[in-house]
Nucleic acid binder design. Structure first.
Lengths: 176, 176
DNA sequence: GAAAACATTCACGTAAACGGAAATGATAAC
DNA sequence: GTTATCATTTCCGTTTACGTGAATGTTTTC
């Protein structure tokens, strides 16, 4: 079988890297370890079209790029921090993908009116995301205030108790 | 069978309600409708020990109090806004329950040193919750900044495009 | 007091988000 | 060049958070 050289990078980078900057590729286990997840999860994310690794070796091994890793980090933030479902995340990310496509088209596009339309669409999607995020933040802030208030009460109680215990040790004090 | 009177409230309220203030009790369907959820969900929450209705009728019907409803609202906020799992929520709420028990004991407790210990514990639990909330908020703020930055880019692009289109339509004019 | 409308408890079903094992192939190490 | 260590796909299992009846009991309404 025509096994290509994995040791010799025959087709390293055709991108705009100016000099000896070779873009790193990671195998699934390394990615899983680095980002505190599992191989199964990474394959699952690919299965549902959420994270498609940039490349594959001749043998079929997945190869993740730095962009893939950044994307995965974003996915994790959305999931763990914000509690979005993978379906919601996929929607968000696809919106982002569209945005990138728009950006690519943006360079090509000759008609300024068409460019403008693309921008407007990307803008709309971003504002949508912003709304969701800000709603969640408001909810969190509310909770934070509740907790802080409680903590304030405890502080007060502690203060009173200390005074009281002092008073018990040495009577002759006006009660609270 | 000794069916008690549901129409005549023989044992209305033995709590500290001073006058004709009778505390409302709601049946499962009303609660479900009001809080935008389902009866099944309410029963499930009870099943996992998350929301135990205050009372039951002789026949076994669940009766929810206003406190129960407030609790349910809190559960929903934790779940929908913050994306906590029901297990996490249960942990949080049980911490809160413990806090309330502490508070009840606090009234009874004669020993100030014991009171102090209880306060310290409640304080610890609240700080724990605060950490989780603030971590989530930091993540959200990060996302918000990302989105705002993108929106700024769009604004810039839009500005450029408008200028460009102006220039193409009517050359020889200063932009408006 | 009988029907309608609501409730109850099983009990099984389901979608999401993976876990884990089996059979097999690819790379790396020696 | 073979062995050990990765990887692959396939498929079935699991947990969470409920949905959806079925069989039955209770409360309300007439």
């Amino acid at each position: 079988m025509p096994a290509t050289s994995t040791t010799s990078p025959d087709q390293s980078d055709s991108s705009g890297a100016p000099a000896g900057e070779q873009r790193a590729k990671y195998r699934i286990e390394q990615v899983a370890e680095r980002l505190q997840t599992t191989k199964r999860t990474l394959r699952y994310y690919e299965e549902i079209g959420l994270l498609l690794p940039a490349e594959r070796t001749e043998g079929g091994y997945r190869l993740y790029s730095d962009e893939d890793i950044a994307r995965l980090e974003r996915i994790q933030r959305l999931k763990d921090l914000l509690g979005f479902s993978l379906a919601e995340i996929r929607a968000l990310m696809h919106a982002d993908d569209e945005r990138l496509l728009v950006r690519a088209a943006y360079q090509q596009e000759s008609d300024p009116a068409a460019k403008l339309k693309h921008i407007e669409e990307a803008d709309r999607l971003s504002r949508q995301q912003l709304t969701v995020v800000e709603r969640k933040m408001a909810g969190l802030e509310q909770m934070r205030q509740d907790i802080l208030q409680r903590l304030g009460h405890y502080e007060q109680h502690r203060h009173d108790l200390h005074a009281q215990m002092q008073g018990a040790a040495e009577p002759e004090q006006p009660a609270q």
